[in-house]
Amino acid sequence: MNDISINIPSLAENIRIVESFIDNAKEELSLNDDIYGNIMIAITESVNNAIIHGNQGDKNKNVELSLSVENNVLVFFVEDQGNGFDYNSLPDPTAPENIDKPGGRGIFLMKALSDELEFQNEGKTIKLSFYLD
């Protein structure tokens, strides 16, 4: 499978494009249901964050989603056109004062569901890796 990427205008309804992209990868790579479920949640969450927080819902800004396979590792990059953020000072969603807050779990979820999570480009790019074996 070659590297593939798509650009998605920052509209919440475009999450369905992301879901199709992941469904195609599942078919192409014969992913099992466990890894597929983890990828679907982590990547849609990441793109959602890029749309809402990164690009501030500006439909004139795109989110780029790309996928490659390197040495049995499925690697996704999600990049927005926002200003980035300080990913080292995120509140802990499991802390008592944050338990009842509706947001703040996205990155926590992405870390839990992916095998590796890395921020790049001042937080404008997120790299999520999933081991295939």
Rank of each mutant, 00 (worst) to 15 (best):
2 N>D: 15
3 D>E: 13
5 S>I: 01
5 S>A: 11
8 I>S: 06
8 I>G: 07
9 P>N: 12
9 P>S: 14
9 P>T: 08
10 S>V: 05
11 L>H: 09
12 A>R: 12
13 E>I: 12
13 E>N: 14
13 E>A: 12
13 E>P: 06
13 E>H: 11
13 E>W: 07
14 N>Y: 08
15 I>D: 01
20 S>T: 13
21 F>P: 00
21 F>L: 07
23 D>R: 13
24 N>E: 12
24 N>M: 13
25 A>P: 01
25 A>Y: 06
25 A>D: 02
26 K>D: 07
26 K>Q: 08
28 E>I: 14
29 L>C: 10
29 L>Q: 05
31 L>Q: 00
31 L>V: 10
34 D>R: 13
35 I>E: 05
36 Y>P: 08
37 G>V: 03
37 G>K: 13
38 N>K: 15
38 N>C: 09
39 I>W: 00
40 M>T: 09
40 M>P: 02
42 A>T: 04
42 A>L: 04
42 A>F: 02
42 A>P: 03
43 I>W: 02
44 T>V: 09
44 T>C: 10
45 E>K: 05
46 S>F: 04
46 S>K: 03
47 V>M: 08
48 N>I: 02
50 A>G: 04
50 A>P: 06
51 I>V: 05
52 I>V: 13
52 I>D: 11
52 I>F: 12
55 N>S: 10
56 Q>G: 05
57 G>R: 09
57 G>T: 07
59 K>G: 04
61 K>L: 11
61 K>E: 00
62 N>T: 03
62 N>P: 00
63 V>W: 02
63 V>R: 00
64 E>I: 13
64 E>H: 05
65 L>N: 00
65 L>R: 01
65 L>Q: 02
65 L>I: 03
66 S>R: 06
67 L>A: 01
68 S>L: 06
69 V>T: 09
70 E>M: 02
70 E>P: 00
71 N>Q: 12
71 N>T: 08
71 N>R: 12
72 N>D: 15
72 N>E: 14
72 N>M: 08
75 V>Y: 00
76 F>K: 04
76 F>D: 02
78 V>L: 04
79 E>F: 05
79 E>A: 10
81 Q>H: 05
81 Q>K: 12
82 G>A: 08
84 G>I: 01
85 F>L: 03
87 Y>H: 11
87 Y>F: 14
87 Y>C: 00
88 N>W: 12
89 S>D: 14
91 P>Y: 11
92 D>Y: 09
93 P>K: 12
94 T>H: 10
95 A>H: 15
96 P>A: 15
97 E>G: 03
98 N>E: 14
98 N>K: 09
98 N>L: 10
99 I>N: 10
99 I>W: 12
100 D>F: 15
101 K>A: 10
102 P>T: 13
103 G>V: 06
103 G>K: 13
103 G>S: 13
104 G>T: 02
104 G>V: 02
105 R>Y: 14
107 I>D: 07
107 I>M: 11
109 L>K: 06
109 L>T: 15
111 K>P: 02
113 L>A: 09
113 L>T: 07
113 L>C: 06
114 S>D: 01
114 S>M: 00
114 S>T: 03
119 F>A: 01
121 N>G: 05
122 E>W: 04
123 G>A: 07
124 K>E: 06
124 K>F: 03
125 T>H: 01
126 I>F: 05
127 K>C: 11
127 K>H: 11
128 L>E: 07
130 F>V: 02
131 Y>L: 11
132 L>D: 04
